[in-house]
Design a protein around this nucleic acid. Structure first.
Length: 464
RNA sequence: GGCGUCGUGGCCAAGUGGUAAGGCAAGGGUCUGCAAAACCCUCACCACGGGUUCGAAUCCCGUCGACGCCUCCA
């Protein structure tokens, strides 16, 4: 199995630190606002990776953190006159719910900055001792980038290059302009924690190093997040953790591409946002997932009506294969039945081959579409329920590995009773060849959101 | 300006040396009272220009273009 490692810019064989165990840490969100579909993409990407690793027989310890101490949270809380930690708790609950609705499996644990303070302080003290960090006169503590010989290795940049292009206003207290804060001294009326350097709060990067250490230990297998985190966040995490432990931090660095809306990255600061909640009002979670599956997790993902419509149709196509065979089916010949079984096997193989190659979900989905076609052809050729079921189970199982639910939409029981009544009426009209009345009823059902499918075995219907 | 990723049919997109997966859309059929769904058929020489090779979408160089990062960001 191969995974693309941002650190080496190559696909590498996947070898875990311990047999059959994967320690995976994925950067979660800063909780001060509704999460958007870009966050959904990232969550879905790592959910797929996690599900596939488990399918492959690994035990996955999946840690996703919440940044609940941050400038933007504090600002938002001030605006609303709310306690910052209360505010973030609210959005954590909210995001947890979003992820559930997206069919993202729960992580093994969800550490929070506000609950990791003692370890963060200890971590910073350790870095100061090793002379990788220094307390400045202004009460801040900075990491010294020049103390780290290979600083810049993840984002493939050199300190000199960054200095040349830097547009940041440099804090006077820093020894080197690229030094970054491990601890920020508290401003008046700001939430703060005690530390050897006075009241303050952690810098952005140290939290992940500390939470990683607390949850998974000094070394992990996979560290993930959006590729906008490569620099500075993950670069700085590596610098901190490896300076602290003296060991390689994460073996594989995995980054998802950015979701594109109108040709640019969707982000809170650009304001081109579609929240997960808004999205799920009009589309099924499977549609978002199919959009992700159709692409490469590392590449930009186009999010627009056209790509979404296409994803929605793809989901429908998957569902078409799960429909039952006709009760009156004559049954397939032994040869045709064997051919369906062998199609299921080869789909399974192609699926694994694709997924083993850096989670090539587009290839995996293509393999499943081949199986969809084989199943539908078999049904058209008169396959019995019993002949269809094994192949359908394979399809359902593999789609499940990708996190697709493929559930039929449902309505209230009253609505369904009403639909059934109208269909009974229409059947009666059809028996009497009253086509005008029959079509009128079909139109009426269409307006209720019901699609009719007539066949020799009677009339089937579905929502949508 | 620097660093990085990438540029495949109308759209999304797989494919790293041997004559281009898959999905959506479109057109033509089968089925159907008509539809719907399903099935069958049709639909690309891979940004451009050089080079390496018996042979390149796939390797090298250049040009143009897109996106990401260099500042909070999944």
């Amino acid at each position: 199995m191969k995974i693309y490692n941002t650190l080496s810019r190559k696909k590498e064989d996947f070898v875990t630190l311990e047999p059959n165990l994967v320690k995976m840490y994925v950067c979660g969100v800063t909780v001060y606002n509704d999460a958007h579909v870009g966050h959904a993409m990232s969550a879905i990407v790592f959910d797929i990776i996690r599900r596939y690793l488990e399918h492959r027989g690994f035990t996955v310890r999946h840690v996703m953190n919440y940044t609940d101490v941050d400038d933007k949270i504090i600002n938002r809380a001030n605006q609303l006159g709310e306690d910052p930690l209360k505010l973030s708790e609210r959005y954590i609950a909210d995001y947890t719910n979003d992820l559930k609705n997206l069919n993202v499996l729960p992580a093994t644990s969800y550490p929070q900055v506000s609950k990791t303070m003692p370890l963060i302080v200890k971590f910073i003290e350790g870095l100061i001792q090793k002379e990788s960090a220094y307390a400045a006169a202004n009460g801040d503590v900075y990491f010294s980038v020049t103390s780290d010989a290979d600083y810049g290795k993840l984002s493939a940049r050199k300190l000199e290059d960054m200095q040349a292009g830097a547009r940041i206003e440099v804090e006077e207290a820093k020894n080197h302009p690229m030094d970054f804060a491990l601890w920020k001294s508290a401003k008046p009326n700001e939430i703060s924690w005690d530390s050897p350097w006075g009241k303050g709060r952690p810098g952005w990067h140290i939290e992940c190093s500390a939470m990683n250490l607390a949850e998974l230990g000094e070394q992990i297998d996979i560290h993930g997040g959006g590729n906008d985190l490569v620099f500075p966040h993950h670069e700085n995490e590596i610098a901190q953790t490896e300076s602290y432990t003296g060991k390689q931090f994460s073996r594989y660095w995995v980054h998802n591409g950015m979701l594109q809306l109108g040709g640019e990255k969707m982000s809170k600061s650009l304001g081109n946002i579609v929240s997960i909640k808004e999205f799920l009002k009009t589309r099924d979670a499977d549609v978002m997932r199919m959009l992700v599956l159709n692409g490469t997790y590392r590449a930009p993902l186009m999010f627009n009506d056209e790509t979404l419509d296409s994803a929605e149709k793809s989901v429908e196509r998957f569902k078409s294969a799960l429909k039952a065979g006709s009760p009156s089916a004559s049954g397939l010949s032994a040869q045709s039945a064997a051919s369906l079984a062998s199609n299921a096997e080869s789909a399974q193989r192609s699926f694994s081959d694709a997924m083993d190659d850096d989670f090539n979900t587009a290839g995996a989905v293509a393999a499943l579409f081949e199986l969809v076609k084989a199943i539908n052809t078999s049904r058209d050729n008169g396959a019995s329920e019993a002949q269809l079921t094994p192949a359908q189970n394979t399809l359902r199982e593999l789609a499940g590995v990708l996190g697709l639910r493929l559930a039929e939409k449902t309505g209230s029981s009253e609505a369904e009773a009403q639909v059934n009544a109208l269909i009974a009426e229409r059947d009666e009209a059809r028996k009497q060849k009253q086509w005008a009345r029959s079509d009128e009823l079909r139109d009426q059902l269409k307006e209720m959101g019901v699609t009719i499918e007539d066949s020799k075995d009677g009339t089937a219907w579905r929502w949508g």
